[in-house]
Amino acid sequence: MGQGGLVVVPPGIPHAFGAAPGVSAELLVVLTPGVDRFDHFRPLGRIPQGLESHDSLMPHQERFDVHFLDASAWRSARHH
């Protein structure tokens, strides 16, 4: 994805996102239909700073309709 790009993820499709190693990125997320996920996204900004752990998100998967899968394939592809 390059600058100004758009990604549309249909419901139920596993997906992940992140800046390439050594590159920063800004992200705008639009969710429809609206599900109150503000309390899901707030800790995401604290995880890279070490103020929150990814594991802290796990108990809330059902509440926010965000389900985490094994990320090893994504991490491997991201480094290539």
Rank of each mutant, 00 (worst) to 15 (best):
G2P: 02
G2F: 01
Q3E: 07
Q3Y: 07
Q3P: 03
G4F: 04
G5R: 03
G5A: 07
L6P: 00
V7Q: 05
V8C: 02
V9N: 04
I13W: 08
I13H: 07
A16E: 01
A16Y: 02
G18Y: 02
A20R: 11
P21T: 05
G22Q: 02
S24M: 01
S24G: 15
A25I: 03
E26Y: 11
E26M: 08
L27H: 09
L28T: 15
L28D: 00
V29L: 15
V29Y: 00
V30M: 08
V30C: 02
V30L: 14
V30P: 00
L31G: 11
T32N: 13
T32G: 09
P33C: 07
R37P: 03
R37L: 02
R37K: 10
R37C: 01
R37Y: 08
F38I: 09
F38L: 14
H40R: 10
F41P: 10
F41D: 10
F41A: 08
F41K: 06
R42H: 07
P43F: 11
P43R: 04
P43H: 08
P43T: 10
L44G: 01
G45T: 07
G45F: 01
R46E: 08
R46N: 08
I47R: 00
I47P: 00
P48W: 00
P48Y: 02
Q49E: 13
Q49H: 13
G50W: 14
G50D: 06
G50C: 03
G50K: 00
G50E: 14
E52M: 10
E52R: 05
S53Y: 03
S56N: 11
L57V: 09
M58S: 08
M58N: 05
P59G: 04
P59I: 08
H60D: 13
Q61V: 13
E62Y: 06
R63L: 15
D65E: 13
D65Y: 09
D65K: 05
D65F: 10
V66C: 07
V66N: 14
V66D: 12
F68C: 04
F68V: 11
F68E: 06
F68K: 10
L69E: 14
L69R: 15
D70P: 03
D70G: 03
A71W: 05
S72Y: 03
W74L: 02
R75C: 01
R75K: 14
S76R: 15
A77M: 10
R78F: 01
H79R: 02
H80V: 09
H80P: 04
